[in-house]
Simulated assay, not measured.
Amino acid sequence: MANTPLLKVDNVGIQFGGLKAVSGVNAELYQGELIGLIGPNGAGKTTFFNLLTGVYVPTEGQILFGGEKLNGLAPYQITRKGISRTFQNIRLFGDLSVLDNVKVAYHSLAKHSILSSILRLPSHFSGEKEMEEKAVEFLKIFNLDGLKYEMAKNLPYGQQRRLEIARALAAHPKLLLLDEPAAGMNPQETKELMDLIAFIRKEFNLTILLIEHDMPLVMGVCERIYVLDHGQLIAQGSPEDIRNNPKVIEAYLGEEVS
């Protein structure tokens, strides 16, 4: 693990009117780590993801990625720097094919120009061919290549989740943010997801930050865990540390632990 963090969150917070949704959060993620972010409903986890990806701009603190400040950058700029995400509620293009959903991500990295596409130049066709070949390779990894011409909205829920992760990976991120990927999955699908997360981390040499309410999943795959409650960081450490932390138990159970 490198000595310099890939992602450094320094005293970050955001205020909406008089409400501090996230306040004074510090965190560091290193290359190749798989880190969990947990907390009760309304703790500020998805807001934190929105800060990292440029959906919201911090009102305090700074976010550094690879040593570069992200504050104020647009989401597409942050994606190009190497941060990609999935969403708590699946956001696929339902009326596009499985293949086209993945190709959308490749278009953000396309080498051919918009002008070449308008004029239908050879570089446009060669670029489109290359993107399609790469997209199919990704679909094979996720066992979705046999469904590449199926409309995304027609896929079963578990396969839609896999497609969303495939699309996020197609942007070639260094850091992948997964927002409750196991939501709505049955136990078998969750087990397969755990295996998939471990595989893609190793296969793509990724750093992964995972929001999840499924505690067996978090405890089973994450090396370190951060815990938010009411927008503040209340604990961090190994799964064993978090499992036995009185502040964490109190946050989830709503009562003080003696």
Results as ranks from 00 to 15, higher is better:
residue 16 F to H: 11
residue 19 L to D: 04
residue 47 T to V: 09
residue 232 Q to Y: 04
residue 110 A to F: 03
residue 105 A to Y: 03
residue 243 R to S: 00
residue 171 A to F: 00
residue 88 Q to S: 10
residue 192 E to K: 13
residue 133 E to M: 09
residue 11 N to W: 09
residue 214 D to L: 09
residue 93 F to A: 10
residue 146 G to D: 12
residue 142 F to Y: 11
residue 77 Q to R: 15
residue 145 D to L: 08
residue 9 V to L: 11
residue 154 N to I: 10
residue 180 E to I: 08
residue 213 H to I: 00
residue 126 S to Q: 13
residue 34 L to W: 00
residue 200 I to E: 00
residue 223 E to T: 12
residue 225 I to P: 09
residue 117 S to F: 06
residue 141 I to N: 05
residue 133 E to W: 02
residue 221 V to N: 01
residue 221 V to G: 01
residue 216 P to L: 00
residue 118 I to C: 13
residue 13 G to D: 06
residue 53 T to K: 01
residue 25 V to C: 02
residue 2 A to N: 14
residue 157 Y to F: 15
residue 71 N to I: 02
residue 236 Q to Y: 04
residue 44 G to D: 01
residue 52 L to C: 07
residue 101 N to Y: 09
residue 215 M to E: 09
residue 39 G to W: 07
residue 169 L to E: 00
residue 11 N to E: 11
residue 63 I to W: 07
residue 215 M to N: 07
residue 195 D to Y: 01
residue 184 G to L: 10
residue 162 R to L: 14
residue 129 K to M: 09
residue 156 P to K: 07
residue 136 V to M: 14
residue 143 N to F: 13
residue 64 L to I: 07
residue 90 I to A: 08
residue 187 P to I: 11
residue 74 A to P: 05
residue 22 V to D: 05
residue 233 L to T: 07
residue 106 Y to L: 14
residue 227 V to F: 08
residue 254 G to N: 09
residue 95 D to E: 14
residue 42 G to V: 02
residue 60 E to T: 10
residue 159 Q to K: 13
residue 212 E to R: 04
residue 20 K to H: 15
residue 24 G to W: 04
residue 247 K to R: 11
residue 257 V to S: 06
residue 56 Y to R: 05
residue 33 E to P: 07
residue 5 P to F: 08
residue 146 G to H: 15
residue 70 L to R: 08
residue 25 V to T: 06
residue 216 P to Y: 00
residue 31 Q to R: 13
residue 7 L to E: 10
residue 56 Y to K: 02
residue 215 M to D: 07
residue 231 G to A: 11
residue 224 R to P: 04
residue 23 S to G: 09
residue 198 A to M: 13
residue 83 I to P: 00
residue 255 E to G: 10
residue 23 S to Q: 15
residue 105 A to G: 15
residue 37 L to S: 02
residue 208 I to N: 00
residue 204 F to A: 09
residue 166 A to V: 08
residue 193 L to F: 04
residue 211 I to N: 05
residue 121 L to P: 11
residue 174 K to W: 01
residue 62 Q to K: 14
residue 128 E to P: 12
residue 212 E to Y: 07
residue 48 F to D: 03
residue 111 K to R: 15
residue 86 T to P: 09
residue 62 Q to N: 11
residue 213 H to P: 02
residue 67 G to I: 11
